[in-house]
Nucleic acid binder design. Structure first.
Lengths: 194, 194
DNA sequence: GTCTATATAGTGATAGAC
DNA sequence: GTCTATCACTATATAGAC
């Protein structure tokens, strides 16, 4: 069905534009122009701006779930998988330097204006937290698993914010080395105490 | 002169509103309403929205410079002063949970839309970086002073982002304890190697 | 210095032809 | 399912009276 295809294209374009410009600074006209459809047609697929935001958040959630499942399927230790997460800041460095972290900047923007979809956006952040917690649990960090998860997540947000502000590649590399060393230390501590 | 007073009130109100709602989501009408003046009068003091943004950034810079100078004047070690910086996330916890870090969220918003004042806003971030670098230098962390400065700054941004997303007070407290322990360790290493 | 009135452009959203 | 035309509203910004 070609109708669903247009809808998919709209969500895809909105996803990019919300990331690159922010939700508030992106207009229906911007999205319609990107998909090359009229503004009128736009409203056949989405009645309100909040509706398209909800669709974008849903897409982002599903994308991240798929990514984490791929990492789970990779043979390897939970430590390897946490390193996968850490290295996102290097993999996506160029985009992060330009637009920040897609998850962090959206949750911050929606929380600021107290938008109804704010809690929905937070689910993406919570998804990462819970996935990281599980990895640290498997690693053997029983009672500290969630603390460590939040620490790594918080670290990634801080690095993304400063990468965007200073565009300093060496800083990102150095911080990745530091946090991987921290992870190694905790992994060894957890293994030895078993 | 009462003219300067109105201008000051406008900048003060804009500063708050830009923090609480973001720059893009704050209109002249919002600011005028907060100061209780007409929109027309507003334009006597500021010709464009960028002009008031520049004034707000200038005010924020001066406010932070004054804060750091107060800390510098406090008798105590550079370690004590870095702890002052670290504890901002506790001092301003309530506001951070609602609106994030005023410095981090503004730099992120302006960088995203590639606003002309983006680099000006980054100066506030750079001010903290340079001040922290100086503290670490005095502490004796010669070649690692700036690395450590960026690490602490990045840490604060990460904590602010997650505090806003999860509103988890225990997380903030725990992270402060961790980074203070990290600072203590580095301070002792630097002192012993002198 | 402050006001009211207004110009102009853009926003989200709707109606109806094809 | 896609379009054009249009609505009501809000935004930044200006002109001119007081």
């Amino acid at each position: 069905m070609p109708g669903k295809e247009t809808r998919r294209l709209i969500v895809e374009a909105a996803d990019e534009l919300f990331y690159e410009r922010g939700f508030g600074e992106t207009s229906f006209a911007d999205i319609a122009a990107a998909v090359k459809i009229s503004r009128g047609n736009f409203y056949y697929h989405f009645k309100t701006k909040d509706e398209i935001l909800e669709a974008v958040i849903e897409k982002r959630l599903l994308d991240r779930i798929a990514m984490l499942e791929r990492w789970d399927e990779i043979r390897g230790s939970p430590e390897d998988r946490i390193v996968c997460f850490i290295k996102i800041v290097i993999t996506n460095q160029t985009k992060i330097m330009a637009y920040g972290c897609p998850v962090g900047t959206l949750t911050a923007e929606l929380a600021k204006i107290d938008h109804p979809a704010s809690s929905r956006a937070n689910e993406i952040m919570a998804l990462f937290r819970d996935w990281l917690t599980r990895q640290f649990e498997v690693l053997g960090c029983k009672d500290k698993a969630e603390d460590h998860a939040l620490h790594v997540l918080s670290w990634s947000q801080g690095v993304a914010t400063l990468a965007q502000a200073f565009k300093d590649e060496a800083f990102v590399t150095r911080e990745v080395e530091n946090i991987v060393a921290w992870l190694d230390l905790n992994a060894r501590l957890a293994t030895s105490s078993r």
